[in-house]
Simulated scan of single mutants.
Amino acid sequence: MHTAPTPAALAVVIRGQEALLVRRRNEPDAGLWGFPGGRIEWGETVFECAVRELSEETGIRSAARDYLTTIDVVRREEGQVKHHFVLTAVLCEYRSGVPEAADDAMETAWIELTDIANAIIPLSEHTASVVRLAMAFLQGPCGDSN
């Protein structure tokens, strides 16, 4: 039984008008679409974790660019905490690769940003709000793309 939250990183990769998502193989969120990510290892930075998890789950090479947000995900069953993750969403720059599902991902795809923002597919909690943050971040303060 855990007595502290599990720190984890999410890799948010935007390419043109699409974001890279994976469909989770394991609980929590099995069968739902979300950003590649996972637990931060001892001695690993959040940026290093995001880049590593992205590579392990999809084969995509990237560079971490900036922090987007931090999210608490607490799931309870019968009043008891079942899962508690503190997820840090990291904006990552796509470098190379063709996504192939591996590790915890059973499927991976480039999905239209508007489809994610409008939750057209079954998404993990917070995925739509994180993609909206990424879209705003990339627009910049004057509406110009960085």
Rank of each mutant, 00 (worst) to 15 (best):
V74L: 15
L32S: 06
I14Q: 06
D66A: 14
I60T: 03
L133K: 12
A50F: 13
V46C: 07
F85E: 11
V51S: 02
H126M: 08
V86H: 07
V98Y: 04
E107P: 01
V46L: 09
A30I: 02
A136I: 08
A64G: 03
A128E: 15
P36D: 06
G59C: 01
G31H: 02
L113W: 05
E112K: 12
W110K: 08
G16M: 01
T114W: 10
M106N: 14
S55L: 13
E56N: 12
Q139R: 07
A30T: 08
L54V: 02
R132D: 15
V73H: 13
R25C: 03
T70L: 05
E78L: 10
R25S: 07
A134H: 02
E100P: 04
G34I: 04
G34S: 14
V13S: 07
T45C: 02
V86R: 09
V98A: 04
V81P: 03
F35Y: 13
D29Q: 09
R24M: 12
H2Y: 12
Y67T: 11
D115P: 07
W42R: 14
V74D: 12
P99N: 10
G143Y: 01
D72Y: 11
V51K: 03
S62R: 09
E27L: 04
I60C: 05
G31Y: 02
C49F: 07
G16N: 03
D66V: 03
F47I: 02
M1G: 15
E18S: 13
I14M: 10
E78D: 13
A50V: 08
L21M: 10
N118G: 13
E93M: 00
L87T: 05
V73E: 14
A4F: 14
T88K: 09
D104K: 08
S55T: 08
F47H: 13
G38R: 03
D72F: 10
V73A: 11
S62H: 09
Q139T: 02
I116V: 15
A119Q: 15
V86L: 08
